[in-house]
Design a binder for these strands. Structure first.
Lengths: 215, 215
DNA sequence: CCTACCGATCGGTAGG
DNA sequence: CCTACCGATCGGTAGG
């Protein structure tokens, strides 16, 4: 089932070539932005001609959309898939958070989380690229909220917990760690985020909503 | 003391012109990025010649640095100065947080917080622009931590509160509200951030560090 | 502050 | 997949 076993050699080469190009494109985009990703620049980074890259994708926007899709695949098997091996409930929720922090901290992409970078770049620029980034962001947030909901159902978090609100708060901490670690070239923000998430989960374990937390 | 009263008409015109240009540059930069801010594009946006803009700043990097400085001034009198009129302690801390959320939500810049956008764009690109953005970010974070320290000194927050950690957590909520409001074109994230900050402050009011919050 | 220009690079296309 | 080209725009400079 390997790509190399396909009999149409030309098509197989095209696929391999495209995948190799995408791996570079995704890295370049987290550093220089999806807009800073130029066809000519990508071509020289993978030792191809500009026309070769242009023909592979058709247009710059198609290249950008393909890059978003490639990043989503990497995110899927780096963060989502490993977390799904943990038992549903608080263990899976914690595994998901830890997988995200590892994904950011280990620099799977040189510019940190691909979607954090892409979101900041396209959040004020309507169009297909923004829509693609937003769809992936929403998918992640929904998945995180679902993990929280299952933790509540399992009795690991208080029933009064607002899953969407807690998902907002947790991902705020994760994004802040990613941002600041990159900006100040330090690992300390990851420790801060882990500490903050622990406190959020502890609060949710005991009483759920923050506002019901008063004496 | 008005700029218009200066006797050197040529210099006065230059100053006025420069300020008018900066007001546009700062808006363009939050939408298209500091890198997407081109000399020719800025020129046509303010109905000047490209050579005129080029001569006003010298180089693109100088234009970018001037834009960061102009944004810092706006941030200063939009967020910092108003909060300083509130009494030191928890009232000033709350005023500071509310001023920041208003600043982001009211779209003082069309692309939301200037520094959130600039940070995302330059955090992986070393150089003078990144350094200028980082310096402003650090100044804000230090100011926020100092407001927290004063709230602790005033007895409004528990003595065991870790000011730097709480500053991390609060600004994580603010940045997340800014990010998501722009990406999903919704005001809901601001309500989530306000709720989250209230919970953080309530926790700090009672026990300080999250880890000391256990039963 | 303007016009007019420089070389380089942009996205994209033609032809093979 | 390549070379060779298109018009447009980039940052920057010269001369006034």
């Amino acid at each position: 089932m390997d790509v190399m076993t396909v009999t149409d050699g030309r098509r197989a080469r095209g696929d391999v070539s495209r995948q190799a190009v995408m791996a570079v494109a995704v890295d370049l985009a987290t550093v220089n932005g999806l807009d800073g990703l130029s066809i000519g620049g990508l071509a020289s980074a993978v030792s191809m001609s500009k026309g070769g890259i242009a023909g592979l994708f058709g247009s710059k926007e198609e290249l950008q959309l393909a890059t978003v899709a490639a990043a989503a695949e990497i995110f899927q098997h780096t963060v989502i898939a490993p977390a799904l091996t943990a038992p549903a409930g608080l263990p899976r929720l914690r595994a998901l958070i830890e997988a995200w922090l590892d994904y950011s901290e280990s620099r799977v992409f040189p510019g940190g989380c691909f979607f954090a970078a892409a979101t900041a770049e396209y959040r004020s620029r309507p169009g297909p690229v923004r829509d693609a980034v937003a769809a992936n962001l929403l998918r992640w947030r929904t998945f995180l909220a679902e993990a929280i909901t299952r933790a509540i159902a399992a009795g690991d978090l208080a029933e009064s917990t607002d899953a969407t609100q807690l998902a907002f708060e947790i991902s705020a901490m994760l994004d802040a760690a990613n941002d600041q670690s990159l900006m100040f070239d330090s690992a300390a923000p990851y420790a801060r985020a882990r500490s903050a998430v622990d406190a959020l989960l502890e609060r949710a374990r005991r009483t759920g909503l923050a506002h019901r937390n008063e004496r």
